[in-house]
Design a protein around this nucleic acid. Structure first.
Length: 643
DNA sequence: TGATCCAGTTTTTTT
DNA sequence: AACTGGATCA
């Protein structure tokens, strides 16, 4: 550990990955094998070799990972070159472009999307808005939402967009009734997006591929700009992302992909880990490097993790090992029901804290978000500080409302946002009137007056946005729209929502240095593409609660994995397609959970659990039987007696 | 128009 | 058990 974490030294494999700067390279990086470190060193090394930072691109899975990479690269370069960090930050051209696929796509579409008829000021809609548009489309097509579930339709369209399918091609193949309905809805939906000058998450990716594929000059421009390309979490790329990568890299062929098939957990989102397997086919001269030494966990934890993952058929054999001493066994706790499980976890966290482990060094992981509730309750009871990585900041209603005002200010045609705030706060524009306004119908004088007032309000905000710094615009908007008065209703809930909007102001202030409309537009973009964790304000000294998916890439001294019951984890979804694949993905997910832990793992399950108000009896997860018994320490004594 | 009530649904994971 | 959307009423 000391060797790897300390200043300079890399192990042989890592060093090889850092030094192989030219040509295609695939790094198979096991969990905790220091891949971020390798990427950071590689980028720093490139810069030292004289590559201009601006010619380096790095795609990460989350904005948080991007942020970390940027700051670590900056520090390393500053150290190596004896430079002042602050002067580097000031000039963004001295930094590589680091971000997620989605933010990258948004970036190039804003810059060059006009060729595709995408205006610079396009809005980005989230999943919720997208679903609302689908519902609206169904309604307008007079299709029964009971018969054609909006979520399912949206799912198909999203999947298709990520497969680079077009409506035209899909229509030809759609012979049965359901696909025909999907085609209709899809067409309607895209039409609505176009009217609003809005793109959904999937459009960002598919349009950027279209842009690069159809416009050679544009492609060339970007190929010339980014000559060194890095893609992290390559196992979780889907077809569009794969094509985007290929297009960008094919000219200079300096592509570095990093990934681990054993940690592929996003197939339900269209990710295909075979992209990794195809790497050698796509780049026959690719250099292959495997990082197998783990610097994170004890060997005992790795033994358990390895025992889990060897059961998968779809993988390239790899054996993670650690030089960290064996450490304590994995604790397994059987609870009668979920309250007892939660109490066990909370109590144990308290005990570990007394033993000197910081709250920040502990995390509770689970398969589904709803499981956090009980655990939160018990942590609250025992006065243990915690933070749930769950609902995203921008998904909160009040935040979306405030953002909608900003979005309209920058994109007048954004009907989706307009609909949202026409009557928010309430100003006498009900459903009927709202529909008429959106449709552009003739209005009664009274209604016209209301509409004019709304429009002039938007005009005022637009005005403010064009000359006030970002935080100032938000402050102005809260007051001027009446949102503040509306939320300030004396209730606790209202106070909380108001506090959230205040938070938005401080988020905006991070962009205050930019020229007026730009601060707001960058903020909107950032906010739209932020993950749950990105938006959490860092609270030191608190236990983190999150899904295993959200925990990807993170590490903690002590990790609790709750709800290890057959059906919950592994999750049994009704979607029976490709059972075996789903099964293996659940297994990988558990593997990811285990490998988050540095020192100690606590596994637990509840015999009875209430889901949807229904009490169900469960068997322990099959995963538990796959861990060799000598690594387990069963049922610690009950810590507290239940009431 | 907007508040209130009831029935039906929800939970897999997320950029 | 909690949240949504639709129906009903003031």
């Amino acid at each position: 550990m000391a060797k790897n974490r300390s200043t300079g030294s890399l192990n042989k494999a890592q060093e090889g990955a850092v030094l192989a700067t030219d040509g295609p390279i695939l790094i198979a990086a096991g969990a905790g094998s220091g891949k971020t470190r390798v990427l950071v060193h590689r980028i720093a090394h490139l810069i030292e070799l004289g590559v201009h930072p601006d010619a380096i691109l790095a795609i990460t899975f989350t904005n948080k990972a991007a942020e970390e990479m940027r700051s670590r690269v900056t520090k390393l370069i500053a150290k190596n070159m004896n430079r002042d960090i602050s002067s580097m930050h000031r000039d963004s051209r001295l930094m590589p472009w680091v971000g997620t696929f989605h933010s990258f796509a948004a970036y190039i579409l804003r810059e060059s999307g006009v060729s595709l008829g995408i205006p610079k000021s396009f809005s980005i809609i989230d999943e919720e808005d997208s679903l609302a548009l689908i519902k609206e489309s169904l309604r307008e097509l007079e299709l029964d939402p009971k018969q054609f579930e909006p979520r399912r339709i949206r799912g198909v369209i999203s999947r298709k967009k990520n497969e680079l399918e077009t409506i035209e091609r899909f229509r030809i193949k759609a012979l049965e009734y359901f696909p025909k309905v999907v085609t209709q809805v899809w067409e309607h939906y895209d039409e609505k997006l176009k009217k609003s000058k809005a793109l959904d998450f999937d459009d960002l990716l598919s349009y950027s591929v279209k842009l690069l594929a159809d416009f050679p000059d544009t492609l060339d421009k970007y190929q010339e700009r980014w000559k060194y390309i890095h893609i992290d979490e390559y196992q979780d790329t889907n077809l569009v992302q794969y094509h985007l990568t290929l297009l960008l890299a094919k000219k200079y062929r300096n592509i570095c992909a990093v990934g681990d098939i054993d940690q592929a957990i996003y197939s339900w989102r269209g990710a295909d880990f075979r992209n990794i397997l195809h790497f050698e086919r796509d780049w026959p001269d690719a250099k292959l490097i495997t990082l197998e030494e783990n610097y994170r966990s004890t060997q005992l934890i790795l033994n358990a993790a390895n025992a889990i993952i060897v059961k998968n058929k779809f993988r390239v054999p790899k054996n993670l090992y650690s030089r960290l001493e064996s450490g304590s066994k994995i604790a397994l706790f059987e609870a009668a029901e979920e309250n007892e499980e939660a109490l066990f976890i909370a109590e144990l966290i308290g005990r570990l804290h007394k033993d000197g482990i910081k709250f920040t060094d502990m995390a509770v992981l689970y398969r589904t978000n709803f499981q956090s509730r009980v655990i939160e309750e018990k942590l609250l009871e025992l006065n243990i500080p915690y933070q749930v990585i769950g609902t995203k900041f921008y998904e909160r209603r009040e935040i979306k409302d405030a953002l909608a005002y900003l979005k309209i200010a920058l994109n007048h045609d954004d009907l989706i946002s307009k609909k949202r705030i026409l009557n928010m706060p309430p100003r006498g524009i009900g459903k009927v009137l709202a529909v008429r306004i959106i449709a552009g119908d003739e209005l009664s004088p009274k209604d016209q007056k209301k509409t004019d007032e709304f429009n002039s309000l938007i005009e005022k905000i637009k005005n403010s946005a064009s000359k006030t710094k970002a935080s100032g615009v938000i402050k102005y908007l809260i007051k001027e729209t009446g949102l503040e008065d509306y939320l300030n209703d004396g209730t606790e809930d209202g106070a909380m929502r108001l506090a959230n909007i205040e938070e938005l102001v401080s988020l905006g202030s991070r962009h205050d240095s930019k020229e007026p409309p730009e601060g707001i537009s960058t903020m909107l973009e950032e906010v739209a593409l932020m993950s749950a964790e990105d938006t959490m304000k860092k609270e030191e000294n608190s236990v983190k609660l999150m899904t295993v998916h959200a925990a990807k890439g993170l590490e903690f001294k002590a990790v609790f994995v709750a709800g290890l019951e057959e059906g919950l984890f592994p999750h049994h979804s009704i979607l029976g397609e490709e059972m075996e694949m789903r099964d293996e993905e659940e297994r990988r997910l558990f593997y990811v959970a285990l490998t988050r832990a540095k020192e100690k793992v606590f596994l637990s399950y509840a015999i009875f659990r209430t889901i949807f108000g229904e009490r169900k009896i469960n068997r322990p997860s099959t995963f538990l039987f796959d861990i060799p018994e000598d690594l387990l320490e069963k049922a610690p004594e009950k810590i507290i007696t239940l009431e």
